[in-house]
Design a protein around this nucleic acid. Structure first.
Lengths: 238, 238
DNA sequence: CAAAATCATTGATCTGCGTCAAGGAAGCAG
DNA sequence: CTGCTTCCTTGACGCAGATCAATGATTTTG
């Protein structure tokens, strides 16, 4: 059976379900597009849908009264947004690039979850992955230096990139960074000035090379991981 | 039907399942006890069980090569440990107080998950709650000052305490802090000296009162929340 | 094209928290 | 009781990263 373009259909359902279930999902889904910079939903707003990123990048951020911001989620294609059983958004969701999301009205999706256990199980798996990522992120925020934070972010994005593309040369990669310096700062718990300075420092030390502002070349991925303070190989193919 | 003492049985299953399913769970479970300070499992070790905290407190921590430590989970009674589908521990799990856990061998538990959808759904709900808590924690680690971090931690523990006990006087509460200063520091991404200093400062400013080292009185909970930089009431009854 | 907006870089200075160090308080063993 | 251990507090000092500020590069707008 061929899978459609919708990640929820593709990732959560396709491999294991029959045609009826596919059809149920198909009938429920609809698409929404956003331009780069647009807000998908504000924290506290009513949220009657759940969704999956089809293309582009979205962020989840929390903001304090005085304006301090912390990114708490970076959503790439196939990532899930929204929470079954909750009608109110907990975070600001923003389109960082042009964005297409595949949406489901919340109520019918919840009903479907109950009737279709393996979708619930797939969702559990995805949520556990996100929780692991959040805990990795907590180590970064609580204990890493600014330099290590930058290196970690680059390694994370490079790895995710690599898992999509076929990987050419071991230890050599380029990353198209989809974030501004300020967004990187919000991700890392830093200021944009510190981000800029540390990127310059990594460039000066030969850990990375810059082509323009956003395209970053990584001549030696292992070196980058050392800079990141990670003890593992970060899941890079050996 | 009466519920047994095991939180997995109680929280995940009892309300919705029939006797057969209860029996299945009953047969699978066993208990393990740990003394305060004992390690339950090391990160990287093989982990053939999942578990639920019955009594006491456990922590999840990550450690970098050079010894920097970040707590990434604080497990209170009824909280879940372990991950279906993963045979290796990702974090150090440590008993902070004397601890009793209700365990299930992982494989049979996974089988049970597939056969008993509402347990999977309950687990999904718990995991989503944990993810929300992790994201709140990320804001704390990335953007809050040392003073706000301490106030936030006290507010969190006070709220959890309150949700267990009946709550006497609004805006007045006492917290038995189950953590050493060092553990608090690992929770908050600080050093133990800074924790100590900020607790002293909050005491000096009348935000809290200390009785001994661990028992903390909170004369005005709203004041504490302001100190924590939270804009909500933190879920305190109105 | 000029003007304005957005994004990035870099410098100078300040400060909150880390680091290093010295005791104090409470519990426990002998 | 004395000495040991564990946990906590407080002081002095230094530094990583925040803040304030100026400028440059690139894109957008009219």
């Amino acid at each position: 059976m061929e899978c459609g373009g919708c990640p929820i259909r593709h990732r959560a359902v396709c491999a294991r379900c029959d045609s009826d279930e596919m059809d149920t999902l198909e009938q429920l889904k609809y698409y929404r597009s956003f331009q780069a910079g647009q807000t998908v939903i504000w924290s506290g707003d009513r949220m009657d849908f759940v969704a999956s990123v089809v293309s582009g990048i979205a962020t989840l951020t929390q903001t304090m009264e005085d304006g301090r911001r912390q990114m708490v989620g970076l959503l790439l294609p196939s990532d899930f947004v929204g929470r079954p059983g909750r009608a109110t958004a907990t975070y600001d969701v923003t389109a960082t690039t042009d964005l297409v999301m595949c949406c489901f009205r919340r109520k019918p999706f919840e009903d479907m979850l109950v009737k279709t256990p393996h979708v619930a199980q797939r969702l559990l798996e995805m949520t556990l992955d996100e929780l692991d990522a959040a805990r990795e992120w907590m180590l970064l925020l609580g204990r890493k230096t600014a330099r290590e934070k930058i290196a970690s972010l680059l390694a994370i994005v490079a790895r995710r990139d690599a898992s999509l593309k076929v990987h050419e040369t071991l230890g050599k990669a380029s990353v198209e960074l989809p974030l501004t310096r300020e967004e990187m700062a919000d991700y890392l718990g830093l200021t944009l000035e510190t981000v800029s300075r540390q990127i310059s420092a990594l460039k000066r030390d030969g850990v990375i090379r810059l082509h323009g502002k956003r395209l970053i070349e990584i001549p030696d991925y292992r070196r980058l991981l050392e800079e990141a303070g990670d003890d593992s190989d970060g899941g890079m193919p050996a």
